[in-house]
Every structure is written in structure tokens, then in C-alpha cells.
Design a protein around this nucleic acid. Sequence first.
DNA 1: TATGAATGAGCCTTCATTCAT
DNA 2: GATGAATGAAGGCTCATTCAT
Lengths: 232, 232, 232, 232
Amino acid sequence: MDRSEKDDAERRAQERWLEELLRAAEDDHPKMTDKQARIVNAAIEIFAEKGYSAASTSEIASKAGVAEGTIFRHYKTKKELLFSIVSPLVAKLVAPLVLKDFFKVLETPYPNYESFLRAVIRNRSEFVRKHLPALRIMLQEIPFHPELREPYKDVVVEGVLPRIRRTVERFQAEGALRADFPSDAVIRLTVTSAIGFLFVRHILMPDYPWDEEAETERTIDFLMHGLAGPRG
Amino acid sequence: MDRSEKDDAERRAQERWLEELLRAAEDDHPKMTDKQARIVNAAIEIFAEKGYSAASTSEIASKAGVAEGTIFRHYKTKKELLFSIVSPLVAKLVAPLVLKDFFKVLETPYPNYESFLRAVIRNRSEFVRKHLPALRIMLQEIPFHPELREPYKDVVVEGVLPRIRRTVERFQAEGALRADFPSDAVIRLTVTSAIGFLFVRHILMPDYPWDEEAETERTIDFLMHGLAGPRG
Amino acid sequence: MDRSEKDDAERRAQERWLEELLRAAEDDHPKMTDKQARIVNAAIEIFAEKGYSAASTSEIASKAGVAEGTIFRHYKTKKELLFSIVSPLVAKLVAPLVLKDFFKVLETPYPNYESFLRAVIRNRSEFVRKHLPALRIMLQEIPFHPELREPYKDVVVEGVLPRIRRTVERFQAEGALRADFPSDAVIRLTVTSAIGFLFVRHILMPDYPWDEEAETERTIDFLMHGLAGPRG
Amino acid sequence: MDRSEKDDAERRAQERWLEELLRAAEDDHPKMTDKQARIVNAAIEIFAEKGYSAASTSEIASKAGVAEGTIFRHYKTKKELLFSIVSPLVAKLVAPLVLKDFFKVLETPYPNYESFLRAVIRNRSEFVRKHLPALRIMLQEIPFHPELREPYKDVVVEGVLPRIRRTVERFQAEGALRADFPSDAVIRLTVTSAIGFLFVRHILMPDYPWDEEAETERTIDFLMHGLAGPRG
DNA sequence: TATGAATGAGCCTTCATTCAT
DNA sequence: GATGAATGAAGGCTCATTCAT
């Protein structure tokens, strides 16, 4: 009992620490004039509502309560306005993955896939809630703007993925995750389950009376059972 | 042995039957003139490539090798052209769900969640491969066109979902699926895992050297373990 | 008497022949629709009146009696419209200079700088009268559009000028033109006098009651006296 | 010999005196703040490079290193800035013509068309070199701004021209200039030859390796031969 | 006096749609 | 049915000009 209580405490500590870490990687919002902020907010609203291409700068201007020319004083083009919204978001999504400390938690004496998932899912859920409209825009526009993906492609494929793969393989070797799946499959199933949850929760059915805590736990429980190793 | 062999045969029969059923619900292609077909194909290509709003009818016309006016002889508006592509697709996606026979398989003497998943996933994978560009367009445009969702909303929420829920709950009652999850959670996890697989397989990483058969089985295995009941 | 009468006849024949030659190099006007012609005419009028940059396509459209969009069906950009007016004009100005036969007249048994000048000045005067507004535009815009000059630069500098130089030098050697000037100076004085006349006549003071015939002769007479060699 | 030496001395004196006179009519440059001077210089550069209409005040401001608003503190409008550059130039070009003393030289005991031309051409050549970019602008914009010409029209047509005409006619009567040309033709040929030289020298081919002294003399020699009277 | 953010009219250009042939 | 010239509204963007600081 003593032992597992201590473990639990450890795990909770881990989770808190990771959430801290993730949260820390997010604050920025450079100084903006009042007008600029209104432009960005109006743009987010309208891009989210009708899509980037179908949104007109004149509509954005009038919703922001500024002259159309004012938009172009702050952003050279409509596209630059879009990118000013989406780029930092993509950056913030990738940021934690490249933090030196991000995966370190899994190398602690009490490594724990479950705690890790919990921390990440919670944090990302908060993140999604906070940036929902801009994320909608990002999902819509990323397919049409390679410039948004390009800078991160190599980082993810060559930097992040191998690290995750190694981590997963260690868990598999230790018997914590099933070893009959290639590590890539484990990653895929983990990620789609987590993102699937966030997508359904925040985008597909945001108005469903979610018990977020419970649903998060269920998703994790489902994942852990689905991926459990002999020891799991 | 005899028993399980018989069961296996049954299951395979079920799967085949369901795949037949799903496939049968798909053939249509109303009579189109050659020109019309070229217009639609060009539109699919260009909508997929740059999005509906950013695509121009003149570009579609020239890719289709017809005059611009010809498009408007067949489709009153650009939007009607979009809908002529996307609407039948949405219909075909919903169609099997409302087939009287679709869930009947689950009421047979050898009900089997796993077989059911296998049949559905395989069929949808084939479906996605066949309609990939149009599905891309659908995913892009559905958020901006309630008219595309509206006709199916009630059917799904009031017709399909309750039926699935009942089915899942029967499996839970029988101990085939875990009963500690609400049926909605079971459905959500099932659907997001399946769709997640199809999305990664066909849209996110279509060029990855997939072993489709194996990956499908892994996804099902993962799901079954994640959702296994005491008997599972 | 006989002799000089015969010479005179020869010279007149030469002049007629050269004028023919110059005139022949000019007819084109590719097929244009009525609308296109109206657009071009309106553009010429307005470009001439207020300059290319200060002219607006909407004004051109309304003067041409067409919709603004119609302009851009025929000319991709406003600049292309400008060039469609000016480019052929520059071409036509250079064209005679590169004709094989153009300077041949000066190699005939009765070479005659004077006749040559007369033919050229008369023809160019007619040319200017015919294309006055477009020439105005050309003069205005050529400094700002190297693309208009570039194609002819080498042709003139390497092809035409040396030929003129040789011709002038032959006249100088024969004593028909003064030999104490470099050939380049002779050319410069000839050209500026001729163009100066055309400029004053058609652009600077088009409303002055010119006796064109007399003034042309005076210009030639002035030139011939100014450039006369010992034999002249 | 004595006589002609004395004449030559007279002539050189005349030339020097006239050049003095012309030069004296030019100094002005009203007091300008440093900023204003930078604005004007930047404007000259940019107007000359791309034309008045195509130049933007913001580009001028940034080249001048001042804020955009600063331009409008000194010049109510962009046009006023243009005029502040061009108007004084036009004035300076006309100024010598209306000087009481300007033609007086021609009424001295040793009147001399040639000396007069030499003095004027030299002076204007210096003038052009000094004000080249602004002169370019003037040439470009004068056709579009009657306000620039208007104030001088009457002065020139009614004041200056008749005086020149009288002078020329006196030379003709004296046999110094050919009398078979109307005085207007003599004036035209003189002016276009002189301006033609300056134009070719400074604008059309500023990079040609001019021997300015020799070329000026040739131009004058050419003019004098072309216009020589029986006595010339 | 100097600034530069803000303005909004107006520019060039695109585009869905119409219609005479 | 098919064409493609013509349309004109609307779009993104520029620019001379104003004004609070």
C-alpha cells in the first residue's frame, strides 16, 4: 500500500510537472495595438465562419470597426493576416514535442505511459478550448498552404518521431505496452485516439454534455487496455 | 474445435454478406454526357487542390476542355456543381447506416462485433480509395454548408444512433463489450479509431508503405482489447 | 540641261520609290472586334490626355462604352493594353531602318542625300499625322518601359547605325557632304533637324498655319547648306 | 587683321557678358529646412525615375528619411510638391528671355548671331547638366499641366517672340542671315538645332564620350552655314 | 514642427453568371 | 446543347491626405 501510494504521488507529480511544462511553452501574444487586436479577432471569427478564401477583408474590417486600409497597414496581404493567426498556433502545437524535457518524464524511475497520456490530453484539451476558432482555421487551411507545414516537417519526421518511437519501444521491451504491434502502429493508435477524442469533444460535438474528466479517463483506459503488454 | 471452426465460417460469411450489402448501396452514376463527366472530374480535381472558394469556374472549364458557359448549362451555379459532387457522397456515407439489413447481422445467432468492424472498415477503406478527392472536398466544405449536413442530422441522431446504442448495449449486457463505459463512449471510441485509421491511411500519409491487411487487423485488435468485456 | 532634267527625273523617281517602300512597311492592324477597337481608341485618347499612370481603366471602359471587365478579357493587364498600342508603333518606326532596300537608294547611280531626306521626312510626317496620339503616348512612356526599347537597341546600334555611318562617309568622301565633321555629327544634326521639324510641326505647334511643303523644303535646304561639302 | 582681332575680342567679351547675365538670373534656392531639402531631392529622384503619377508619397518620404506626414506639412498636396520642383525651373528657362539686356547684345555695334548662339548654348548646357533630373520631370509633366505653361504663354508669344523675330529680321536685312526664309523658320531651325543638341547630349545619350566643346562648335557651324546670308 | 496610424476613395483585376449566336 | 464574349459586382490592395499626439 505504502509503495503504491508513493507511486501514485509520484505519478501525480509527474503529470503536474508535464502540464506545467506544456503550459509554459505557450504564452506569448506580442504587443498589439488595440486596433490590431480587433482586426485579428474579427479575422479569426470570419475565417472560422466562412473559410479563408470566402472571407473578405472588407467584412473583416467592418466587423473589427476599422477602415479596410488599416488591415493592410498591419498585414501586407490577406494571406499574411491568415498566417499571423495560424503560424504561431502550428508552432505552439509542435513546440512541446521538441522540448528537451518533454519526454524526459518517461525516463524517470516511475515511467508511465498512462500518466503521460493524461497530462498531454488534459493540456491539449485546455489548449483546444482556448484556441478553438483559430484551430478550426488551421485545420481548414493547412492542406492548402504547404508553407505552414514545411518548416516543421523535418523537425517532426527526423527529430520527434524517432524519439517517440524509441520511447514506445522501450515500453514494449519492458512489457508495459504490447510488443506484437510495430511501434509506429502503437503511436498511430495513441495519437488518433487522443486527437479523435479532442476532435469529437471540441469540434464535432462541442455542445454534448461532456463529463470531461470521466471521458478523458475512459479514453486513456481504452488506450491502455488496447495497447496493454503482458505486464500491463 | 468443431465449434469454433463453424463459428469462424459463420463469421466470414457474415463479413462477406455485409460487404456485399455495403457495396450494393453504392452504384449509381446517373447518366451523364461526356462533357458533364469531364466537368465534374475537373471540378473534383480543382476543388480538392485549392478549395471550393478559391477554385474558379474558368479554370474548371479549361481543365475540362469545355466552354465556361457549358458548366452553367449543366449546373445553375458553382455551388450546385459543388453539391452535385459532395451531396451524393454524403448520402452514400449515410446510406448503409439506414439500411434495414445493416445491423441485422448483429442480431444473428453468432453476433460479432469484430466481424462487423472488419467488414465495415474494409468496405470504407475501399470506399475512401475510390472517392478520395471528392471526400477531401467533402471534409473541407461540410463545415461551411449546413445544407449538406441538415438532411441527415435527424436520420442519424434519431434513427441510426439509437439503433447502434441498443446494439452496443446488448453486446455489453452479453459481456462481449465492457460495461463500465456508457454505450456512447464505446461508439465514440470505435468510430474515432476506425475513422482515425482511414484518415491516417488515406489522407494524412497516403504514401507510407502500408500493409493494409495487417494494419486493419491491428486496429480491430486494438479496439477489441480496448473495449473487451469480461467475456471478451 | 538635258542632263540635269534627267537627274531630276531620276531623283523624283527615287523619292517615290522610297516613299512606297516606307508606306508598305506599315499596314497591319490585325483583326479586332468592334469592342476591342473601341477600347484601344478610348485608351489612346485617355493615355494621351493624362498619361498612362494617371489614366484609369474604368475611365477607359466608360469612354469605350464597354464594361470594365471587357478590357481585361482582351488585355490581361493595363500595361498590356498600353503595350498593344505602343509596341507596334515602335516596331513600325524601326522597321524601315532595317529594310534591306532602305539605303539602297543611296547606292544608285544618282545618289542623293537630299532626295533621301525629302522622302523620309515626307513619309514620317504622314506617319506622325496618322499616329499622332499614339506617338504622344510612346514619347511619354518610353522612358519608363525599357521593354519597349530593349528589343531594338542592338538592332539599331549594331545594325542600322553602322550602315548609316558608312553611307554618310561615302558621301563625305565624294565631297557631297562636308568632311570636317565626324559622320556621327552629321547623322546627329540630320536626325535632330528632321525630328525637330516633325516635333514642332505636329506636337509643339500643331495649330500653326504650316505650309508643310515649303517648310519641309526649307528644312532640307537648311540641312543641305549646313552640311554641304566642297562639291555641294 | 587689326580689325578682325578687335572684332574677335569684342565677340568674346559679348559672350562672356551674356553668359554672366544668364548665370545671374539663376541663383535662388529659397531657404529650406534640412528636411524640406531632403524631401525635394527624394521627390526629384523618384519623379524622374518613375514619373509623377506612378511615384508614391510614401516612397518619397522613406527615401527622404522623413515621415509621410512631414511632406504634407511642407506641401499641401503631392501636386504642389511637383510644382515646387518644376515651376521655378520653367521660370528659370523663360527668365533670360525676358531680361531687358538679353537681346541688347545683338544691338551692339558688333552684333553677332554666332557669338550669341555660342553663349546661349554653353549656358544652357551647363544649366541642363545642373538640373538634369528636374528637367526630365519637367519634360514629362509639362504636357499634363497647363498651369505650368500658361503663365508664360503670353509673355513668350507676345513679348519674346516678336523681339526675336525683329532681331532675326534685322540680321536678314543686313545679309548676315539668309533672307529667303521667313524669320519664323530661322528661329525654328535655330531653336530645334540647339535644343536637339542639348537633348541628345544630356538626355538621349548622356554616356556617349562627348567632346562638348567641339560638338558645340559644330552645331553652331552647322547652323551658321545652314542659315548663312549672302554676306555670311 | 514632426510623426505615423488611420482613413476611405479609388485602383486594377477576377469571377460567377448571362445570353446572343 | 454548346459556345465564349460580355458583364458588373466585388475583391484585395494602394495611396494621398488628415489629425491626435
